[in-house]
Structure formats: structure tokens, C-alpha cells
């Protein structure tokens, strides 16, 4: 994954960059499967590696295949990114090790969902009952976000044909 992320930064052919980001998403999905988050992996593979690659290719067809050549390396952005990255890594040092049963995340609502989901909601897949029932408002919000995104795309580039016709008739 690190190699692909580095290649993504260095390449100038945007077509290859889109393909690489698809591969990156697929590798991320594999990582999620290894961490037993099957639902997340499924979403990552379908959305990240599938649909967004197609949409990116569509965007490329509308714009250009190559990005602008940059002149030289600028020190300040690299410095900021390195410092932020180091700070984030420093922050993870305090976190409990992966899979630690005594980690705080397993003792808050997670415990409650695991204990009560079968009795209160029913479906054997706890992820579904959390998503749809316990966190129904959040899911409703997410669907609204997708709806808004589609409306936004429509408003931005969907109506252009009519507008151009109007310009021509004027």
C-alpha cells in the first residue's frame, strides 16, 4: 500500500493515477477483511475500487489526462506534512494495541450493542442492526448526503446543455 501511495504521488499520467487509486482501495479492502470488518471491506471494494474509479474516469474524459508539471520541490508544504504525520504517529503510541479486549472502545456502547442487539432488534448481523436501527438517524443523514451529492452534480454540470442553447439563441 505504501508503495502504491508513493507511486500515486509521483505519477503524472492521470489515467494511471486513477487505476492506482482503485488498486489502493482494493488493498485497503483486503486490510479491512484481515481486521474482520467485512461490511466495511465490502463497501470499500464496491465504492472505492468500483464506482469511484468509473466516475474518476468520467471526470478525466471531461478534463485532461495529464496534470500540470510542477517546478521543483517546495520545502514548506513537505515540512508541514512531515510534522503532521509525525504528530499523528505520536498520537497512536498512546492507543491500546489492536484487538486488546480491555481497550475503552470495547466497553462503551459497543458492549451494549453486542449484549442487547439480538434481544432488542433481532438480525444476526449486528452491523446491520446498529446501522439501520440504533443509528437510524445517522444512516438517514448519509442517504441525504448521497442525495445531495447527486443533486449537486446535476446542478453543476447537468443543466449546461440548456444554458448553452439559451446563449446561442441570444
Amino acid at each position: 500500500m505504501v508503495v502504491i501511495a508513493y507511486l500515486l504521488l509521483r505519477m503524472h499520467n492521470l489515467f494511471a493515477v486513477v487505476m492506482m487509486s482503485g488498486i489502493y482501495s482494493l488493498l485497503a479492502a483486503v486490510l479491512y477483511v484481515i481486521m474482520d470488518a467485512v461490511d466495511v471491506a465490502f463497501t470499500e471494494a464496491a465504492v472505492g475500487a468500483g464506482i469511484s474509479t468509473v466516475l474518476m474516469l468520467g471526470t478525466l474524459a471531461l478534463t485532461s489526462r495529464r496534470d500540470k508539471e510542477r517546478t521543483g520541490n517546495k520545502p514548506i508544504p513537505i515540512l508541514i506534512v512531515t510534522i503532521t504525520g509525525l504528530l499523528l504517529i505520536y498520537g497512536t503510541l498512546d492507543m491500546p494495541p489492536y484487538g486488546d479486549p480491555t481497550a475503552p472502545i470495547h466497553h462503551h456502547v459497543g458492549r451494549y450493542y453486542i449484549d442487547n442487539s439480538g434481544e432488542q432488534v433481532g438480525p444476526p448481523n449486528i452491523v446491520t442492526s446498529v446501522l439501520a436501527s440504533y443509528r437510524g438517524y445517522d444512516t438517514l443523514g448519509e442517504v441525504t448526503v448521497i442525495f445531495t451529492a447527486a443533486i449537486g452534480v446535476m446542478a453543476l454540470i447537468g443543466r449546461s446543455r440548456k444554458r448553452k442553447k439559451k446563449l446561442k439563441t441570444n
Binding site: 461490511d39 465490502f42 463497501t43 464496491a46 465504492v47 438480525p123 452491523v127 446491520t128
Partner: peptide
């Protein structure tokens, strides 16, 4: 509700 998946994945 029995296995992984749901509306988001199915729609995509």
C-alpha cells in the same frame, strides 16, 4: 441482516 452487506453496497 444475515450476512455482510446492505443498501449502500447493493445500490452500488
Amino acid at each position: 441482516d444475515f450476512g455482510p452487506g446492505g443498501g449502500f453496497q447493493a445500490g452500488v
